[in-house]
């Protein structure tokens, strides 16, 4: 095992970096999409059941199946991986963003209107900052989930640590099968923990001291 890692040190590091990078970029995309949809849903209340249904159904689609469906349109490589990871990452963020935005006290909003803030200012300066801790929790859940989804993206030859696991599985009984699988899995766990720590720090820095728990 030690020799296995020793021989592939640079490759493992590079793949870990790719894995993390894929997840982070997809997360950023997913946050924009999730919060954007949440704003629509909380503005036009009629959309709320539809959004709930989509996020519930969305989570039941196996990621394998989604990747398979994407293949004819996007080919193999990075693009289908990003789409798949983003797709799943949106769902928890969307759900938390809706809850977060809806739970902002109506009295605060009216107070803000009464001071002469328009809808846009209220969103950026009142609703978003107040919903932010809840949205950040959604982003952290998404980040953990995306680590696993990103591994599956190896199926479409995506980047990251996924191919190690696949190699391990497809050569079961072979010389390095266990090594591949273990290094791939543990690598993903380490990257996931690092990212979570980063997100906790980021959440602290971006949440007002006045509402920090």
């Amino acid at each position: 095992m030690i020799r296995f890692i020793d021989e592939r040190w640079a490759d493992i590091l590079f793949r870990s970096y790719q894995h993390g990078s894929l997840v982070i970029q997809s997360l950023i995309l997913a946050t924009l999409i999730g919060v954007g949809i949440a704003v629509l849903v909380t503005t036009y209340r009629g959309l709320s059941p539809a959004a709930n249904a989509i996020s519930a159904v969305g989570l039941t689609i196996p990621s394998f199946a989604l990747l398979g469906l994407l293949l004819p349109f996007t080919g193999i490589g990075v693009v289908p991986s990003v789409i798949a990871v983003t797709f799943y990452a949106v769902l928890p963020i969307l759900r938390n963003a809706v809850v977060g935005l809806q739970s902002v006290d109506g009295g605060i909003i009216e107070s803000a209107r009464g001071q002469g803030m328009n809808a846009m200012t209220i969103f950026w300066r009142v609703r978003l900052p107040l919903a932010w801790p809840v949205i950040m929790t959604g982003i952290r859940v998404s980040a953990q989930m995306s680590m696993g989804v990103a591994a599956i993206a190896a199926y479409v030859l995506g980047p990251g640590l996924g191919p190690y696991i696949f190699t391990g599985l497809s050569t079961v009984g072979g010389a390095n099968a266990l090594n591949y699988a273990v290094v791939g899995t543990v690598g993903i766990i380490v990257v996931a923990l690092l990212l979570d720590a980063l997100l906790v720090l980021f959440a602290r820095l971006t949440t007002s001291k006045g509402i920090r728990a």
Binding site: G107, I108, E110, S111, A112, R113, G114, Q115, G116, M117, N118, V126, P129, L130, S208, G210, I211
Partner: peptide, 22 residues
């Protein structure tokens, strides 16, 4: 309407302060 409200003071029960602002 928003311009009008900036020219009128508005004080509500409990203060109605923004919890995330100093």
């Amino acid at each position: 309407a928003t311009e009008l409200r900036r020219s009128i003071g508005y004080v509500i029960q409990g203060g109605g302060l923004m919890p995330h602002m100093t």
